[in-house]
């Protein structure tokens, strides 16, 4: 039997029907049409499906879709303000911190969570916080530079 879920995604109230076994990732991609959140493993080991639930960074593949009831979900589609990119997004582009781009949505969502929690991370703190976001293309160098530069810029703007 399908479950009816009412939730808030990127500030907008959304309703969907899902099977109770489906994950939040399934629901976002297949029932809400938000395919920016990617599936790399389905087991919490790659971070491509990172979203926030009530502000907490999680893998959406490890959340049951019915758990979204009454919660506030943040996805990659909610990071930019319409056509105005978030500083983190701009820095990822400036630093060429993506090659294929499949890990990028998850990394940007995670980076935003990192900088909200710790606006001034050291390189080591950034690397450990983002250890759950696998990237196979870049060797992480440019990602970490983008993250640290975004932190600097956001501090300057604050």
């Amino acid at each position: 039997m399908k479950t009816h879920v009412t939730t808030t995604i990127n500030g907008e109230e959304v309703e969907f029907l899902c099977e109770p076994h489906e994950t939040l990732l399934d629901a976002l991609r297949n029932h809400v049409g938000l395919t920016g959140t990617k599936e790399g493993c389905g087991s919490g080991d790659c971070g491509a499906c990172s979203v926030t639930v009530d502000g907490e960074l999680v893998c959406s593949c490890l959340v049951l879709a019915p758990e979204a009831e009454g919660k506030s979900i943040g996805t990659i589609e909610g990071i930019a303000d319409h056509d105005k990119l978030h500083v983190i997004q701009e820095k990822f582009l400036e630093h060429a911190a993506l090659q294929c781009g499949i890990c990028t949505p998850g990394l940007i969502v995670s980076t935003k969570a990192l900088l909200e929690e710790n606006p001034n991370p050291t390189e080591e703190e950034a690397r450990y916080y983002l250890a759950g976001n696998l990237c196979r293309c870049t060797g992480y160098d440019k990602i970490i530079r983008a993250v640290l530069d975004a932190a600097e810029t956001m501090k300057g703007a604050a």
Partner: peptide, 23 residues
């Protein structure tokens, strides 16, 4: 030069469509 990649906007906003994204 180190230009901004033209597909960049789509890839940092989740708009870019990958293999599993088409219904």
């Amino acid at each position: 030069t180190r230009s901004i990649r033209p597909d960049g906007f789509d890839k940092v906003t989740g708009r870019a469509n990958y293999a599993a994204d088409l219904d």
